[in-house]
Design a protein around this nucleic acid. Structure first.
Lengths: 349, 349
DNA sequence: TCTGTCCATGAAATCGGTTACATTAGCACT
DNA sequence: AGTGCTAATGTAACCGATTTCATGGACAGA
């Protein structure tokens, strides 16, 4: 049997389709008797309205697009969850897409075809210029797009942001207070706000403590654990290790630790390592990772909230921002500095 | 400016809307001259067709729903990625939802409203009976639903499956070959195929080796790391530790290890621990976790493939299956058994 | 020249809802 | 009884594509 339509319901209830629609959308406009008759018909026919027909008429899809550079990355999963919960609560479904090969045109495409009502960009940082162009394009008014960033005002649309400078500063300060002086940093990749903020906080803390940072203590990093391996490989070549390392995210911190531990370097006794993000499982790492927790689910939730606000009031200014806080997590991967240089087992060369 | 419609294009090109539609869908049916004129108009007006109008007429949304019990769980992120890639390649978008509170009716709702063309259930195991009921409901033919499971034939629709019995058997066997006899197991939660399969493989391996498994070596578990904590708490009360532990997933293995290590028990020297799944970061855990890799991205990809097949040919039998293989990952968390009982530092009572 | 085909194109119906506008009945008030 | 108002409901247009069916012209064959 095919799906029932309003027409079928109206016929069975002996009313017009308009009345059926009213029962569905403004029940109080229909007399109780008629309403009950319609309701009964709806139930009997197992009627649900067609999403497509509704979308066409109402010009809204009740879908929102969530964009992340890489949906396979665990950093985003909790955010998705936050967005999804909030979205569902408000009758929206979320369509998730990644920015494969840096191509963002499908995002615009989706928006223009009306397949989605709005967009949440979880990593606006590397967003293609076309998208920004699109925002100014003449065939669209204020585009319903919101984002997430590590720096206030770094994107031209409403966004949720979590300051990264301060927590990076504080975490570095924490190491200094533990007695460390020889602290190295591993940066986040590319020229994104996140890189600048985290590095900036580190450098500022060092400067404020009057500790110079030699060039060889600044490493290039990446968001995956292999970046940590690469840094470990370099460290193992050296005859002197820093006493502490500030990594720009947890994955690279773990990559680094696992490699160093395998080489016989104890963490935190011989080397303190701190991360950033408090990714899933950072708390059960051994040693449990000292890091900074980003409120990931909250970020997703607030981003969706923001989008709902923009959807409701399209005049919401593009510089609207919602700030969320980080939480330091002092766990077991940082300790006072060692007193003597450790001997690495499989030190090559 | 508002979005251009076919009407606008047809007017500008001096043809009928039917011709515009033909240019879009069957270009060869239109003379080259007319086609070029239409194409030019499309370009000039920046025309894209309305997803809603298309859906209404074509009765398909080009959306597929992906259901996971918990989208915040890292176990699913790679699967999402696999599904998403394959979907995008084929012009589909993926809508992701979780099964909050075990309520699955919104799934049916989505399917019935035509908001999605098909469903991929990533954890069909705990699926609500209503959904299965729905499959037999009279108002629907073969419903386009596919899933993923740990046991062949455990769900009544086409599915991708990864046998869990064999790898659990082999991993246990590996520990036995290392010399372990006193091996404990931590089960997966609830009465899901995954629990039975993984436990079954373990028990069978023990039985084949002629090693009895005392009751106290079988622990209840859960999919989160706190399940590992709970087991660790029990172990620490005992005056004797098993020499090896088989955990039903990596999270609980990590929870267990982190707690045991904190208590002064060395892994793998004092206690070998193996996990299951090869979750993200298992390779950079310290010690790197010995586990079984599930081809997560591949699972997602194949599930989408299967759905495309069902979409194309609705008569695809519900017992259609695609089997994928696991890969053992022998890393650093398992070693030959200790020779003497370890002394735990913060052993209470 | 007439008829039959084929090709390119257009007119209008259709998908399934929502809603502006029209209509009717019922009631109060003068 | 006549007028005005309100509440309940119906009629039909509309959202923006696709597609069936009809039509007109070109050309080949008789």
């Amino acid at each position: 049997m095919k799906r029932a339509r309003v027409t079928d319901v109206s016929r069975l209830a002996g009313v017009s389709t308009a009345t059926v629609s009213r029962v569905l959308n403004d029940p109080e406009k229909v007399s109780e008797e008629t309403r009950n008759r319609v309701l009964a018909a709806i139930k009997e026919l197992n009627f649900v309205k067609s999403a497509a027909a509704f979308s066409l008429k109402a010009q809204q899809s009740h879908n929102v697009l969530v964009v992340a550079s890489n949906i396979g990355n665990i950093f985003y999963s909790k955010m998705f969850q936050g967005v999804q919960r909030k979205a569902e609560e408000n009758g929206y479904s979320i369509i998730i897409t990644s920015r494969t090969g840096g191509r963002d045109d499908h995002i615009i495409e989706r928006l223009r075809t009306g397949r989605v009502d709005g967009i949440i960009v979880l990593d606006a940082m590397g967003m293609a210029p076309e998208v920004f162009e699109f925002l100014k394009a003449p065939y669209q008014g204020t585009p319903p797009i919101v984002g997430f960033s590590e720096k206030a005002g770094s994107v031209p649309f409403p966004h949720v942001f979590v300051d990264n400078f301060r927590p990076a500063y504080n975490l570095t300060r924490y190491l200094i207070d533990l007695g460390h002086r020889d602290i190295a940093v591993v940066q986040a990749p590319s020229e994104l706000p996140v890189r600048l903020e985290r590095l900036g906080g580190f450098l500022q803390a060092m400067e404020d403590a009057g500790i110079p940072v030699p060039e060889h203590n600044i490493f290039e990093g990446g968001f995956e654990s292999d970046a940590g391996h690469a840094v470990a490989a370099i460290l193992k070549q050296r005859d002197h290790l820093p006493t502490a390392m500030v990594c720009s995210n947890d994955e690279m911190a773990m990559g680094l630790i696992s490699e160093m531990v395998a080489a016989g370097c104890r963490v935190p006794q011989d080397l303190s390592v701190v991360g950033f993000d408090d990714c899933t499982l950072a708390d059960v790492y051994s040693p449990p990772l000292t890091t900074v927790a980003q409120p990931r689910e909250r970020i997703g939730k607030e981003a969706m909230n923001l989008l709902l606000r923009v959807l409701e009031d399209p005049t919401t200014p593009p510089d609207t921002m919602v700030e969320l806080d980080t939480q330091p997590r002092y766990r077991g991967s940082a300790a006072p500095p060692r007193t003597s240089e450790p001997v690495l087992s499989n030190q090559t060369a």
